[in-house]
Each structure stands twice: as C-alpha cells, then as structure tokens.
Design a protein around this nucleic acid. Structure first.
Length: 283
DNA sequence: CATTGACCTGACTAC
DNA sequence: GTCAGCAGGTCAATT
C-alpha cells in the first residue's frame, strides 16, 4: 500500500483516538500491524493510522471512513453533557477520543451472538474462523464478513466447526430470519428504542444485552445501555444502593436516568475503563 | 421489568 | 506442564 489519503481532523471530528476506538472491544476484526490498523470496510480491505490530528488511510473513500468512525458527531458535546462524577470523569479521561463506530447491522448482530458468554480473544478467534470459512475473498488475504444467506444455507456442523459451540443454531437461525427479511434494518431504524429492542429480541441468540449492543453499535441509539457483567458491577458498586436486587432493565434504566439520553456512550467509556475502576465488593 | 441452571469452548490463573 | 474455574448471556423451566 503505497498510496494513501490523509484526512485532517478538525471541528466535530475531534476528539478522536483511533487506537482507543478500535481496541476497546466494540469491534473484533481490526488488527494492528506496525503503525497501521488493517480491517474491512464494506467489501474492501482498508489500512488506517492516526498521526495526531491527521488520519491516513487507503482502500476506501473519505466519506466512508468519516461515516464509519462517525466523525461528524459532536463527541465533545456528548461528553460535556454527562454529570461530573469522579468515576465517569476518570473513565472519560482514560479513554478520551473513543468513538462508537457504525458497524454494519448484520455483522454486529452476528458478532455479538457469537460473543455471548465468551472473552474477547475467543470472540476474535471465532469470528476469524467464520470469515475464513464462509466469507468472500476480497484480496490481500482479507475476507468479507459472511453474508446471512451464506450462513443460513450452511449446515450447523460446519458453523460449529468455527468453535462457536451451542451458538451455531442461533447464528444459523438469525441468519435465516434476517436474510429472508430484506427491510429489517430500515424497520429497526425507524422504530422507537423500546419497540426496536422488542423486535430484535425475537431473533434466536439475541437477548437484552445483545439487542442493546446491536442498537448502540450498529444503529447508534445512544439511549441503549448494554449491561454486561462489568457494567453491572460498576453500576451496582458506584451508582446504586448495595444489597438490593437489580434486574437488567433496572440497571439500564438507572444508567439512563443518571447519564441522560446518551447513556450508551457513558457505558462505552465506563466499559473501556473497566480495569481501572475499583471493585468495591472485594473489600 | 423474577429466579435458576445448563451450556460449547478457549484463554488464563493458580497450583 | 497440568487443571479447575471462569468468561462482555441466552434459553427454558419454574414460582
């Protein structure tokens, strides 16, 4: 890759931190090789790296890069709109410039179905296997994310051979439903949050947490707050009263009440800083 | 807007 | 080097 374009980050595009954005665990298919991040945008291999307020990239037009990283979003305003509690402020400080990328809806859905009850390295392995086994070759050693049609038409044993375990039937089932439902993305996008989530919950392998991940990461519904074990722990120990029973929705609702309409972004910063946030329960 | 247990598999931690 | 316990939940059954 000798030819690349350069995008000067300014205005709403700042703050932006490419490393934090791609390594925080929201996406699983980007790989850093030397200074460059290698990944796939749409059906094309992309190389990208950041140098201060310069973004060097190749393989995709600038508007695709800008849209994927949501560089038109006024992130500064969102961060400034949060309450100034010490835990969140520390998280924002440590992950400053992290942006929620616009993941393709199907890739996001399939990825988080595969991601349930697993750790990040395992998720990456599984997705890599799935892409190599079922994805279209797009050159340069890269593969596109497998289409739902392809997965829906594949035997469960072939899918399971990608180490997805019992999730094989969820992946295949959801692939079958979505590949037969051409307007699903537009329909979800047009629905209010609650209705959109209820729709997604009909898909096999998609529970509240995965549905919220899809809504937050693919549809940019910033009121969606995925509550995983980390967020659960952080909310319970730092934002809620101890010794009380909290359901998923109570924790998510509390997050929306505390952090406001962009609570999903607060969630992402808290998640990114999860290792640094003390676990009060251990004392 | 509840609670509980089984569940594929791999990467990590502690022996 | 080996091994139990655990990991970014979901589903089905149960009260």
């Amino acid at each position: 890759m000798s030819r690349y374009c350069t995008l000067h980050l300014e205005g709403d595009a700042l703050p932006f931190d490419l490393d934090r954005t791609l390594s925080c665990g929201q996406v699983f298919r980007w790989e850093k090789k030397g200074h460059w991040w290698c990944g796939v945008l749409g059906q094309k291999p992309v190389l990208i790296r950041q140098e201060g307020d310069l973004l060097h990239f190749s393989g995709a037009p600038e508007e695709d890069i800008s849209r994927y990283f949501d560089l038109d979003l006024d992130l500064e305003e969102i961060l400034a709109g949060f309450p100034d509690d010490p835990i969140l402020l520390q998280a924002i400080d440590s992950a400053y410039g992290l942006r929620i990328v616009r993941q393709p809806a199907w890739e996001c859905t399939a990825s988080y179905i595969v991601a349930t009850f697993a750790n990040i390295p395992g998720i990456q392995t599984r997705l890599k296997l799935l892409c190599e086994r079922f994805g279209e070759r797009i050159g340069d050693g890269h593969t596109a994310f497998p289409s739902p049609e392809k997965l829906a038409a594949s035997p469960l044993c072939d899918i399971r051979s990608c180490r997805v375990g019992y999730r094989d039937k969820y992946l295949c089932g959801t692939a079958a439903i979505l590949s037969a439902d051409h307007g699903w993305e537009e329909r979800i996008a047009a629905l209010p949050y609650r209705d959109a989530r209820r729709e997604l919950l009909r898909l096999p392998g998609v529970g509240k947490k995965v549905a919220d991940c899809i809504l937050l990461f693919a549809f940019h519904r910033f009121e969606a707050v995925p509550v995983d074990v980390w967020i659960d722990r952080i909310m319970r120990t730092h934002y809620l009263e101890e010794d009380t029973r909290y359901s998923y929705d109570r924790i998510a609702d509390a997050a929306r009440q505390i952090f406001g309409p962009n609570a999903g972004y607060a969630q992402e910063y808290l998640f990114a800083a999860r290792e640094m946030i003390p676990d009060m329960r251990k004392k």
